[in-house]
């Protein structure tokens, strides 16, 4: 567990331990690629891997928010260049997500008093992930097969997405809270994106991770945003929430290790373009199928962890050192 000494170690001043730079770059690169490809943060990978390498969990969580702010901005700017960001939608999701985080912290306290909190959170998250993953899989896979057949017939019909005629009418488009999102070519009740933001924020407050896995599919299926705008808008929203989280973590917990954050970031910014490039070349249903498989893999891993006996039955955090 991170105890193999090599020349490539750097000392992390906040985590109080040396870590192998190459491993951290590599981890950053994988997470950056996923950010570029799917518009998710990658906390589901970072937290367990950093913990495995010996970084205390609180510092892993605090540090990855700083790394994600940098990666998120890098990705946002790349998507921006090819008009892949819906700024209005991004802001509304951000507002919802801040509300969700604030409410989530209170819910967390309340559930803690009742007890059983961890069981409730873990079970609901695994259920949610499995449901979202399965839904995406069964939506995208048949579409892909049908499309292959259609292509073979060499009669490619222009789809609705490619030929926009006026604003797509989303949920509640006729009601009094309807808002136009011109970038997304969409009219929808503003309460829907706010609500989705709240759910994303709640997840982050309760689990520390997992906002992207719920937000991205929701943007595709519930908001019916054009696929080309989903990643950029998700990353845009991530920049705001992670900047806020970094400030909070650094000020109240002293849990942001800037050396670790920069090492991760250098790895991830180099692979964000590769992910974003692949995302722009993949057909939307292929991207959705890949994301469905990733979500199902994460849900499967979590399920496995729930039932298999852990190696370490106890985890220890030292508080108030030095």
């Amino acid at each position: 567990m991170g105890s193999i000494k090599t020349e490539m170690d750097i000392y992390l001043p906040i985590a109080e331990m040396p870590i192998n730079v190459l491993w951290v770059f590599g981890l950053g690169a994988v997470v950056g690629f996923l950010s570029g490809l799917f518009g998710v943060g990658g906390g589901f990978l970072l937290t367990p891997f950093l913990t495995f390498m010996g970084v205390p969990p609180t510092i892993a969580v605090g540090t990855q928010s700083a790394q994600l702010a940098g990666t998120g901005l890098s990705g946002t700017l790349m998507h921006w260049k090819r008009r892949g960001v819906d700024v209005r939608m991004g802001f509304i999701l951000t507002v919802g997500s801040f509300l969700g985080t604030a409410v989530g912290v209170e819910i967390f306290k309340w559930l803690k008093q009742i007890g059983q909190i961890n069981l409730v959170i873990v079970l609901s998250y695994v259920t949610l992930l499995s449901a979202v993953g399965l839904m995406m899989f069964f939506e995208s896979a048949p579409r892909l097969i049908r499309r292959e057949k259609r292509l073979r017939a060499a009669a490619r019909q222009p789809t609705k997405e490619e030929q926009p005629q006026g604003l797509t009418q989303g949920w509640g488009a006729g009601g009094s809270f309807a808002v136009d999102f011109h970038a997304s070519n969409l009219r929808v009740n503003v309460l829907l994106p706010i609500g989705l933001g709240i759910i994303g924020g709640l997840l982050v407050a309760l689990l520390g991770v997992g906002g992207g896995f719920v937000l991205v599919p929701a943007m595709i299926y519930l908001l019916k945003m054009p696929p080309a705008l989903v990643n950029g808008t998700s990353l845009f929203q991530i920049v705001f929430t992670t900047v806020f989280a970094t400030a909070l973590q650094a000020i109240s917990n002293h849990s942001v290790d800037i050396v670790l954050a920069l090492a991760l970031l250098l790895g991830s910014v180099m692979s964000v373009p590769m992910g974003a490039r692949l995302a722009s070349r993949l057909r939307p249903e292929v991207a959705r199928l890949l994301m469905a498989l990733l979500i199902l893999a994460v849900a499967g891993k979590m399920m496995f962890d729930l039932f298999s006996t852990p190696d370490q039955l106890f985890s220890v955090t030292m508080v108030g050192l030095s």
């Binding site: 700083a66 940098g70 901005l73 890098s74 790349m78 900047v243 970094t246 800037i258 954050a261 910014v269």
Partner: peptide, 21 residues
């Protein structure tokens, strides 16, 4: 420290987007 960390990561993120444009 928080402000410095945020400024640094945003700077690197922005710079990377420019370099890899």
């Amino acid at each position: 420290y928080a402000a410095l960390a945020i400024a640094l990561v945003l700077l690197i993120g922005g710079l990377a987007a420019y370099l890899f444009r």
